[in-house]
Design a protein around this nucleic acid. Structure first.
Length: 202
DNA sequence: GCGCCGATTTGCT
DNA sequence: GCAAATCGGCGCG
């Protein structure tokens, strides 16, 4: 078990980068920390997708569409966009860029690093391997929508981990999005066992 | 190991 | 009415 005392919390500036695709790449290898009472969970981000707002047909906010759900993405970068997918799964996104620019990065897969309540030997391969499993593992739900990543109970940190190799591919489940369907906005740590299944793994 | 299907909110993609 | 940034259970063989 590695030590986790070298975390450096990502600052507000990180989330204001106007290049959401760049942020999606940079988030690979970073660590999400979630505190919930006595429990603290640490998970390394191994797969992300960029959603590039108004010009991206795959984004909920395509054409600057504002609804009760999408309004979160129009806030200033540095908060969580959590929404209910298929009526039952919560998905976690990182909102980026300035206010009124609806950029976001979907966290698609994580590798659990340490959980004080679960022996590491019981961390199955599938744990955190899929966007709905990410929120399930971290205990994130609709109540965390708009939570700041500068808070103490939910934040992202750099522990100097550098992914050996990164791959890109089209995003998953956005076949309706026309030209944007093919954009290589999905990023993952090449060959990482917690990336979503191998049919998607290239 | 595969493919089909149901669950169930949100916004008409 | 229906499809969606999904997952897990079931039947098959």
């Amino acid at each position: 078990m590695a030590k986790y005392n070298n975390f450096k919390k990502l600052s507000a500036d990180f989330y204001l980068n106007p290049d959401v695709v760049d942020i999606a790449r940079q988030l690979l290898g970073k660590v999400i920390i979630k505190k919930d009472g006595q429990t603290t969970r640490y998970a390394r981000i191994v797969e992300t997708e960029a959603y590039a707002g108004a010009e991206d047909r795959a984004s909920h906010a395509f054409g600057n569409k504002r609804t009760v759900r999408t309004e979160t993405m129009f806030a200033k970068g540095g908060i969580a966009y959590v929404y209910l997918c298929y009526g039952m799964h919560h998905l976690l996104n990182v909102v980026t860029n300035q206010k009124d620019i609806p950029h976001a990065v979907l966290i698609r897969a994580i590798e659990p690093l340490f959980d004080s309540s679960i022996p590491s030997t019981k961390n199955k391969r599938r744990t955190g391997s899929g966007p709905a499993l990410v929120t399930k593992y971290l205990g994130i739900n609709i109540k965390h929508n708009r939570t700041s990543f500068l808070s103490t109970d939910l934040f992202i940190a750099d522990d100097q981990f550098i992914p050996e190799q990164i791959s890109a591919s089209p995003r998953i489940g956005v076949d309706y999005a026309g030209e944007a369907t093919r954009w290589p906005y999905r990023f993952f740590i090449t060959g990482h066992p917690h990336v979503t299944p191998s049919t998607y793994n290239q």
